[in-house]
Design a protein around this nucleic acid. Structure first.
Length: 500
RNA sequence: CGGGGUGUGGCGCAGUCUGGUAGCGCGCCUGCUUUGGGAGCAGGAUGCCGGGAGUUCGAAUCUCUUCACCCCGACCA
């Protein structure tokens, strides 16, 4: 049975019992998508808003997902010959001022550090800033300028190129409208910065890193992406070209999920990243930068989660298998727990991330907790299973229709396969939905008609030449849609729609 | 930063118009019965009603002022 069929069947069954099936998350996606999103996060215990304005606390379960994410992405980055390093959080204002377009793009959202000391404030009994800095610092919104400073020191000869450096870091952009994972004032990411001797190499590199992100999104996060190039208006400030992968979420809005920029010689000019070429000539390097952020966790939620909460792709799931002992009679407790322990060890030996819930919580609470946290495989073990040498397991993405009871040996033999199937199936479902949300139109009138009908969700795709049409500006304004990208896979076509 | 909304036990809300002992549901704790898709009964704990200033004999309630969060725009990974 496919996931769609299973879900359909599930819905039909629930439909018979009650008009409105009980869901773990309220409101449902259909009722209120933004609130549903928040509720999924808190129900899964992933993160919460912090006392610090615009910032969030990533709780252990959410952070564990991020750690698997990092691990997978980091190994891919290294395979591209990139080395990790770390640069300062604070950037002297004068470095930041060097690249004019860059300043225009980020100035409005920079946090500025102006003092280096606190002293008692006699007026209110608290503390006040003192020790004004001779030169203000900004908290990095991105690090092109400060890394450029280092690159100008590190790069002297064509022999020093290419130079490929990545850092895992937090950055700060003073956001007006924060949303957990999607847009917070402080967020975590990796930012790669590469330098080359030629323009061709730089452009190839920025496309290659985008392809890496696309592959990562597909195979690790099970998220299909629309890869393409940003239009000039949507470009990174200071870039010659910006390449992007866009996810189309369940509500039809697009989410820019990672970007890779060909910076040309803009930053090497302002930071003076120059080298002596083979023929002894002084030349400016060609640089790229590329980043993917904790926003991707938000994409994962909005792509995969359902009205019962989170569904985590097995590749990044903190617990891939969750074992719930079902204990009726205290006399069986230690036997059942031992049985569960044995299974847990066998799964660990297969490098499966397994969690055994031996807590005092009631069984149904454990089950719903497991569902809301989106654990891929739930295993229930009671006296019945134990005595028959069995276990019962259920896949999170399919639900109760996937409930299977079989022997421990049979399960251990195929658990890896089940997880792989689920990973693939999550992608397939997401891919089908993404494609169903892209609507081809021939004219701007057709696009207008599409967005004017409130029943329509998704994005439109049309000939990129229409972007020059005056009516396009009106379309953008009326429906707050923007060109998401010039689609690589559909040459000459642009994707247009609402976005986060 | 503009327009709208909301701040009341851990969470969700009522009470505010018309000032007069702070309430409900869920959760939490204790006990018993339960336990395979959100258990039942009984008892119990938890609030400077977002902060500050006023008006008043008296303020969750009226006035002013601040702060935070949510939704819609503009901006953005």
């Amino acid at each position: 049975m496919t996931v769609q069929q299973a879900k359909q069947k599930n819905n039909q069954q629930q439909g018979k019992k009650a008009k409105k099936p009980k869901t773990a998350i309220t409101p449902t996606r259909a009722e209120n998508f933004p609130e549903w999103y928040q509720s999924v996060i808190s129900s899964a215990d992933m993160a919460e808003n912090s006392a610090t304005r615009g910032c969030m606390v990533i709780k252990p379960y959410g952070y564990a997902i991020w750690e698997h994410f990092q691990q997978e992405l980091n190994s891919r980055i290294k395979k591209h010959g990139v080395k990790n390093a770390y640069f300062p959080l604070l950037i002297p204002l004068r470095f930041f001022e060097k690249e004019a377009e860059h300043v225009d793009g980020f100035a409005k959202e920079c946090a500025v550090v102006t003092h280096h000391r606190l002293e008692p404030d006699s007026e209110n009994g608290g503390l006040k800033p003192a020790g004004e800095l001779t030169e203000p610092m900004i908290i990095r919104p991105t690090s092109e300028t400060i890394i450029g400073e280092s690159f100008s020191n590190w790069i002297n000869s064509y022999r020093d190129l290419p130079l490929k450096i990545n850092q895992w870091a937090n950055v700060m952009r003073w956001e007006m409208r924060p949303r957990m994972f999607l847009r917070t004032s402080e967020f975590m990411w990796q930012e790669g910065h590469n330098a080359f001797a030629t323009a061709t190499e730089a452009d190839e590199d920025s496309r290659k890193m985008l392809a890496m992100y696309e592959e990562f999104a597909k195979n690790v996060m099970a998220i299909p992406m629309i890869a393409g190039e940003k239009t000039a208006d949507e470009r990174f400030p200071g870039a010659v070209a910006t390449y992007t992968i866009e996810a189309i979420l369940q509500d039809g809005k697009a989410l820019q999920s990672a970007t890779s920029h060909n910076l040309g010689q803009n930053f090497s000019t302002s930071a003076n990243i120059s080298f002596q070429s083979q023929d002894g000539e002084e030349k400016l390097a060609w640089t790229t930068s590329w980043g993917m952020t904790s926003r991707m966790i938000g994409a994962m939620i909005m792509m995969h989660a359902d009205d019962d909460g989170l569904i985590v792709p097995p590749k990044v799931a903190p617990h891939q298998v969750y074992i719930i002992p079902v204990i009726h009679d205290d006399a069986d407790r230690s036997d059942i727990l031992n049985y569960c322990e044995n299974l847990s060890k066998r799964l660990q030996d297969q490098d499966i991330r397994v969690e055994l819930d031996a807590s005092e919580k009631r069984t149904p609470d454990k089950m719903w907790g497991c569902i809301k946290q989106g654990v891929p495989l739930r295993v229930e073990i009671g006296k019945r299973e134990m005595e028959a040498g069995n276990i019962t397991h259920t896949r999170r993405d399919i639900g109760r229709d996937s409930k299977t009871t079989e022997t421990v040996d049979a399960f251990c033999g195929k658990v890896t396969g089940i997880l792989d199937d689920m990973q693939q199936s999550m992608y397939d479902v997401a891919y089908a939905r993404t494609m169903s949300m892209i609507h081809d139109v021939k004219t701007l009138d057709e696009a207008h008609a599409f967005f004017a009908d409130k029943n329509n969700v998704g994005q439109v795709r049309f000939d990129a030449s229409l972007l020059q049409d005056e009516a396009f500006a009106d379309l953008m304004k009326e429906f707050s849609v923007t060109p998401r990208c010039l689609i690589f896979a559909n040459e000459g076509k642009v994707l247009v729609g609402r976005s986060y």
